[in-house]
């Protein structure tokens, strides 16, 4: 059976698959070994709200819950697993220790290519310019 338009179809398919794979090829070629960003951790506070692993993975979910607890239920004190109490507030609790957004938040967010809209409203500890 003769294939109609065989040449353009095959070339087109080849081009399509090539373009599809291009990012992977380029990515492998130019990306260096991934290095975890170096965060500037608070100098005089060793313990965060919850464990390091938990905060690393779930801080966005925790902030989500915090927001609803504080705004909707009016409950603004959070007791962590160790029984320590914290005031629920991004600006007045989190950022009092992590007093530099650029050296902490932005480091990972930039690497992960995410831009959370926290700072559209919340004021970063460095202040606004």
């Amino acid at each position: 059976m003769k294939m109609h338009y065989g040449f353009p179809i095959i070339v087109g398919l080849g081009l399509f698959i090539g373009l599809l794979c291009l990012p992977f090829v380029i990515g492998k070629g130019i990306t260096k070994e991934y290095k975890q960003p170096e965060l500037k951790l608070p100098a005089n506070e060793k313990e965060c709200i919850e464990s390091k692993e938990f905060m690393r993975r779930e801080h966005m979910q925790l902030l989500n819950d915090w927001r609803d607890w504080a705004l909707r239920d009016g409950k603004r004190i959070y007791t962590n697993h160790a029984g320590k109490e914290f005031t629920i507030s991004l600006q007045n609790t989190c950022m009092k220790c992590h007093n530099n957004k650029a050296d902490f938040c932005d480091k990972c967010h930039t690497d992960a290519g995410v831009s959370p809209y926290c700072w559209d409203c919340h004021i970063q500890p460095e202040g606004l310019k």
């Binding site: 609803d68 909707r72 409950k75 004190i77 005031t87």
Partner: peptide, 17 residues
């Protein structure tokens, strides 16, 4: 609904100031 459910259950990690 979780926040409400959690707030009403005894296990809530949050409370009023």
């Amino acid at each position: 609904l979780a926040p409400k459910a959690m707030a009403s259950s005894g296990a809530s990690p949050v409370k009023k100031n």
